[in-house]
Simulated scan of single mutants.
Amino acid sequence: MPSARRTAPATIKDVAARAGVSRATASYAFTQPSRVSAPLRARVLAAADELGYVGNDAARRLRMGHSLAFGLLISNTANPVYAEVAAGAEREAAANGRFIIVVNSDDDAERERAYVNFFESQQVSGIIAAPVGDVPAELLELRDRGTPFVLVGLAQGDHDFPAISGDNELGGYLAMRHLLDQGRSRILFVGGPHPHVDARLAGARRALAESGADASLEVQRTPAQNARIGEEVAEALLGRSAADRPDGVFAGNDLLALGLLHGLLAAGVDVPGDLSLIGYDDIEFADFAIVPLTSIRHPSAALGAAAVRLLLGLETEADLSGAFAPELVVRDTSLPTGR
């Protein structure tokens, strides 16, 4: 007589019973494998295979809004910093049996909102967001409906969601302190309209105030931070007399700094002889510029990995306090002539 066939799909309870483990342990084997020993996880997976659980469970998770995927919303993948954030997030997700769906809003707030709605339709189990500006209302509403998110960046004002960032104020302080140590006294800060850039500027101002140096700080805000705008800033500087130009420039990120560097060198300005230049983020291209760029190293991959751990509940914001300290990386664009 043929054996009776199972008419109902296998559940996690069935898998736990077959493997001889608790229901929680069976669940961890799929969702948080780092919490289960390798032999125990292998036993759970073998039981799931025997029962045909994996495919059914994936469908169940999608119906329940608990897929194994996290969404990663990036404002512009042209910025190598976000590629590093994504790489860190993907490595950490893979280590925990999860997946990352990466989307790029290309600095378009409307597209960003559409992607938040897309994530909801895919029923991701959490979102990592590096948005164009403020946290979009759609993301807050999605959180209120049960999908958590982590902001990679500085949150403005009071907030009730996790937000992680490097110490941008300290990074700005280190950059300005370095320019002052090189004897620069007419310093220009150039940066875009972002909270983390505001923090970098605040750090630069603190360093100048504490130094007591006879130096000035000029501030120029830009609509975005990319190499093309950096070239435009360089062109504007070249329209000034040599005596009226800054002798030190702190750019809000490396792309902006590299555009500045290209425009200045093309016009015959001696960097760092006439002008010291420092960027922020220490992207890979900084070290390969025709004049290697001094920069503040930003732990982008570590931020992406930490965001995944926060979503998984493996860490809290308190656990990450002080974990993302910036570091000054000195290269040729800021050293005095002849050094």
Rank of each mutant, 00 (worst) to 15 (best):
residue 1 M to L: 15
residue 2 P to N: 02
residue 13 K to A: 12
residue 20 G to I: 02
residue 24 A to V: 10
residue 26 A to D: 02
residue 26 A to I: 09
residue 29 A to P: 13
residue 34 S to M: 07
residue 35 R to G: 02
residue 37 S to W: 01
residue 41 R to P: 03
residue 42 A to W: 05
residue 44 V to G: 01
residue 46 A to L: 14
residue 46 A to C: 10
residue 50 E to I: 02
residue 54 V to E: 15
residue 55 G to L: 10
residue 58 A to S: 13
residue 68 L to C: 09
residue 70 F to M: 13
residue 71 G to P: 15
residue 75 S to P: 10
residue 77 T to L: 15
residue 77 T to E: 14
residue 79 N to G: 01
residue 84 E to Q: 13
residue 84 E to R: 07
residue 84 E to C: 04
residue 86 A to S: 06
residue 86 A to C: 01
residue 96 N to Y: 12
residue 98 R to V: 05
residue 100 I to E: 00
residue 104 N to D: 10
residue 106 D to F: 05
residue 106 D to E: 13
residue 110 E to D: 14
residue 115 Y to N: 04
residue 116 V to H: 01
residue 118 F to S: 10
residue 118 F to N: 14
residue 120 E to Y: 15
residue 120 E to I: 13
residue 121 S to D: 06
residue 128 I to D: 13
residue 130 A to Y: 10
residue 130 A to E: 11
residue 131 P to K: 03
residue 135 V to M: 05
residue 136 P to K: 01
residue 138 E to L: 06
residue 139 L to F: 02
residue 139 L to A: 02
residue 142 L to E: 00
residue 146 G to Q: 06
residue 149 F to Q: 04
residue 150 V to Y: 14
residue 153 G to S: 01
residue 157 G to P: 03
residue 157 G to E: 07
residue 158 D to T: 09
residue 164 I to R: 02
residue 165 S to V: 06
residue 166 G to W: 09
residue 169 E to V: 09
residue 177 R to W: 07
residue 178 H to A: 00
residue 179 L to E: 01
residue 182 Q to D: 06
residue 182 Q to T: 10
residue 187 I to M: 01
residue 189 F to H: 13
residue 193 P to R: 07
residue 196 H to M: 14
residue 197 V to T: 13
residue 204 A to V: 06
residue 207 A to H: 12
residue 209 A to K: 14
residue 210 E to R: 02
residue 214 D to F: 10
residue 217 L to S: 12
residue 224 A to N: 15
residue 225 Q to D: 07
residue 227 A to V: 14
residue 228 R to P: 05
residue 228 R to S: 15
residue 229 I to T: 11
residue 234 A to I: 00
residue 235 E to P: 06
residue 235 E to I: 08
residue 242 A to W: 13
residue 243 A to S: 14
residue 243 A to Q: 08
residue 246 P to T: 06
residue 247 D to T: 04
residue 248 G to F: 13
residue 251 A to W: 11
residue 252 G to E: 10
residue 254 D to Q: 04
residue 255 L to S: 03
residue 256 L to I: 00
residue 258 L to N: 09
residue 260 L to M: 11
residue 268 G to A: 08
residue 273 G to Q: 00
residue 276 S to V: 04
residue 280 Y to S: 09
residue 280 Y to R: 05
residue 280 Y to K: 05
residue 284 E to Q: 12
residue 287 D to S: 14
residue 290 I to A: 11
residue 290 I to Q: 15
residue 291 V to N: 11
residue 291 V to P: 12
residue 291 V to T: 10
residue 300 S to F: 12
residue 303 L to M: 12
residue 306 A to W: 14
residue 307 A to M: 03
residue 308 V to G: 00
residue 308 V to I: 00
residue 309 R to F: 09
residue 310 L to K: 05
residue 310 L to M: 08
residue 312 L to A: 03
residue 317 E to G: 11
residue 320 L to Q: 03
residue 325 A to C: 02
residue 326 P to G: 04
residue 327 E to F: 08
residue 327 E to S: 05
residue 330 V to I: 11
residue 332 D to N: 09
residue 334 S to R: 01
residue 335 L to Y: 06
residue 338 G to T: 05
residue 339 R to V: 11
